[in-house]
Computed example of a mutant assay.
Amino acid sequence: MLNRSTSVLLLCVLLSGCAGSSLKRQKPALVPNLPTTAVQAHEVTPELKAEYENAIAMLREGETDPAQDALNNLLKKDDQIAGAHLNLALILYRNGEYDQAKRSVERTLQLSPRNAAAYNLQGTLMRRGGNFDGAALAYANAMAADPNYAPAYLNMAILFDIYLQFWDDARQFYQRYQQLSTNPDPRVEHWLQDLNHRINEQRG
């Protein structure tokens, strides 16, 4: 079964578009709305599974264009492989093809409605489009789908820190990201120190 896939390209998505600012606004409501009904697992033939694994191997080697071609060819044969849609979405995102990436993410979630990685990318696409409430909900969905999925906490922290400026909330999400990471990220630790400094200055 390939209905869930942790993308090998997620690190290309995490910290993109981390510049920007926003006037102070109402805090988004972080109420996940995951589907309650399960989707039947999709069985993939051994031949198609081998094609999928070959495409992922290409991604790991940085062969993005051949991997994209392989995923597209695979999906022509079987459009119900959620992991293929997700990895294709990540390639499209990296290439700046945001509308196509959005469609691939939506298809991923149709097939795998509790896919944390797909919600994470959906949030990043929404954040890029200025839909901050939608981005917050998507990241909340990612956390609800997998409470230990660290990238969603980092992206939520970035959203609350830079875009929405709810700094206390951002600090909590940064801290949770560091707790979930096998090796805490020194860049995030630096951001936390800077954030703590801003919070202390704001409070006088």
Rank of each mutant, 00 (worst) to 15 (best):
P46I: 09
V31H: 08
Q68N: 14
N72T: 05
I81A: 14
N33T: 08
Y52A: 10
Q40W: 15
L48S: 08
K102G: 13
A55M: 13
H85R: 07
E47D: 14
Y93H: 13
E43D: 15
T64F: 12
T36H: 11
H85S: 04
R94Y: 14
L71P: 03
E47L: 06
E61I: 01
L92F: 04
L90M: 09
V39F: 01
Y52Q: 07
D99I: 01
R103D: 06
Q100N: 12
L90R: 09
A41M: 10
I91R: 00
A70K: 10
T36M: 15
A41I: 08
I91A: 04
E61R: 09
T64G: 13
N54I: 11
R60A: 11
K77H: 13
E61A: 08
D78S: 14
L34T: 04
S104I: 03
L90E: 05
Q80P: 05
D65S: 06
E61V: 07
L92K: 05
H85N: 03
V31D: 13
L90I: 03
Q80L: 14
A67N: 00
V105M: 07
L92A: 10
R107L: 05
A101V: 02
E61M: 12
A89D: 02
L71R: 04
Y93N: 09
L75D: 01
D69F: 15
A50Q: 11
V44L: 10
E106P: 00
A70Y: 07
G83M: 04
R107F: 12
R107S: 03
D78R: 12
D99V: 10
A41V: 14
G62H: 06
A101N: 02
L90P: 02
A67R: 00
A101W: 00
I91C: 00
D69M: 08
I91F: 00
D78N: 14
Y98Q: 07
V39S: 03
R107V: 01
S104V: 01
H42N: 06
E51I: 03
R94C: 07
T108D: 15
E51S: 15
V39R: 04
T37S: 12
L86S: 03
I56G: 03
T108R: 02
G62R: 14
R94W: 08
L59Y: 00
P32G: 06
I81V: 15
A38I: 04
D78V: 07
E53Y: 10
Q68D: 09
E53T: 11
L74T: 10
D69R: 13
D78L: 11
R60Y: 08
D69V: 09
D79M: 06
L92T: 06
D79P: 03
E97M: 15
G96K: 12
E63P: 02
K76D: 12
V105C: 07
L86G: 02
V105P: 01
A101Q: 00
N95I: 10
L86F: 11
I91M: 03
Q40F: 09
N33M: 09
G83H: 05
E106D: 05
P32M: 01
L88G: 00
I91S: 00
A38F: 09
K76Y: 02
V105E: 07
P32W: 02
G62F: 05
L48N: 12
R107G: 02
D79R: 04
V44D: 04
N87T: 08
T45C: 13
K77A: 06
T37V: 13
M58P: 12
P35Y: 10
D65K: 13
Q40M: 15
